[in-house]
């Protein structure tokens, strides 16, 4: 008898939980939502998040706060997300690092595949292969020819080991079959400073950072890293069409929650964020920054995340980059 009673009790609790879940999803959100950005304020991820959170606040009738928890390539912020309650009140928007970290670090304090739920792909952005105006090569073909003639003499800057603009370069090296020396910097500003000063001749960087200098004639663009030409600068050819077929390296920004978040909440957040990303105003703001808003379904994004993780794992393995 005792067994049956506890079974009934368990059943009742389960039913109640389900009901509560449903009611919860309908009334969600009843308190402010926090979006963790695992990078310092002022960067690209932070700006995208702030643009979105502002609209979400208007649409949901609850404050959506941005919480900057920078450090360790986003690992510190991700760890905070993973440890928070999966109730939809703690979310995170982060960059490509998230998909690269598992292959770069010997160990992470969480399991990227298991401890997070993929909510939606927020935006993608190509990088531009930038060169100092004094650099002899004007196209990717010329660059490849130059690198082959003088192997190991070219340098390319990046904002740090394992970032998307470092690995864009490593992937380019291996696919084009050339050798260039990687020069990592502490963030984008000092790297851009050395590129503008001609101390280093090449760098992959975002359109937002590169285009103003290209337009001012201080830098030249050799190519973009996306598979198709980018809308913000359609005159710049892609690397894929310039002799490295199949090359594609995107920076992307996506939203996650802690694993075990109720399905209803996942759907609700996904719908709300997608709605914001399709607003003409947001589309324009993102486009101005050289990014393309996406807002796909959790399933689509989960599949994309998986493919990106596999792609970068191979690049990381090939170039031997390692962080610990």
């Amino acid at each position: 008898m005792k067994v049956r009673r506890s079974f009934v009790l368990a059943l009742a609790v389960t039913v109640m939980l389900f009901a509560a879940g449903n009611v919860f999803a309908q009334s969600y959100p009843t308190k402010p939502i926090r979006i963790i950005v695992p990078f310092p304020a002022g960067g690209a991820t932070d700006i995208f998040t702030r643009l979105i959170s502002q609209k979400l606040t208007e649409n949901l009738g609850q404050q959506v706060l941005v919480d900057n928890r920078g450090g360790a390539s986003g690992i510190i912020g991700t760890e905070i997300l993973v440890k928070s309650a999966p109730d939809g009140y703690t979310l995170m928007i982060t960059a490509t690092h998230h998909a690269i970290n598992p292959s770069l670090y010997k160990k992470l304090p969480y399991d990227t595949a298991r401890d997070l739920v993929a909510l939606t792909l927020v935006a993608t952005s190509p990088n531009i292969l930038l060169a100092h105006p004094s650099f002899p090569a004007n196209t990717v073909q010329e660059l490849i020819a130059m690198a082959k003639a003088k192997p190991g003499q070219l340098n390319f800057a990046s904002t740090g080991i394992g970032g998307s603009n470092h690995l864009s370069g490593e992937m380019f090296k291996s696919m084009a079959g050339i050798d260039m020396v990687h020069i990592p910097y502490k963030g984008a500003a000092p790297a851009m400073n050395d590129l503008l000063g001609g101390q280093v001749s090449l760098m992959f960087d975002t359109p937002a950072a590169g285009l103003p200098h290209i337009r001012a004639g201080k830098l030249k663009a050799l190519a973009v890293t996306s598979a198709k030409r980018t809308a913000i600068a359609p005159d710049i050819p892609t690397i894929a069409e310039s002799g490295v077929p199949g090359y594609e390296a995107l920076s992307w920004f996506a939203m996650y929650g802690p694993a075990k978040m109720p399905k209803e909440i996942v759907t609700r957040i996904n719908t709300e964020v997608a709605k914001v990303l399709h607003l003409p105003e947001i589309q324009k703001r993102f486009a101005d920054l050289g990014a393309e808003p996406v807002g796909n379904s959790p399933e689509e994004f989960a599949a994309y995340l998986k493919s990106e993780m596999a792609k970068w794992a191979k690049v990381v393995k090939d170039c031997g980059a390692r962080l610990d």
């Binding site: 304020a41 002022g42 937002a208 001012a216 101005d288």
Partner: peptide, 15 residues
């Protein structure tokens, strides 16, 4: 400040 400019729709740069 770069972030603030960007949020306000100003692209920081030489222009």
């Amino acid at each position: 400040m770069v972030g603030a400019m960007t949020i306000h729709g100003i692209t920081p740069g030489p222009q």
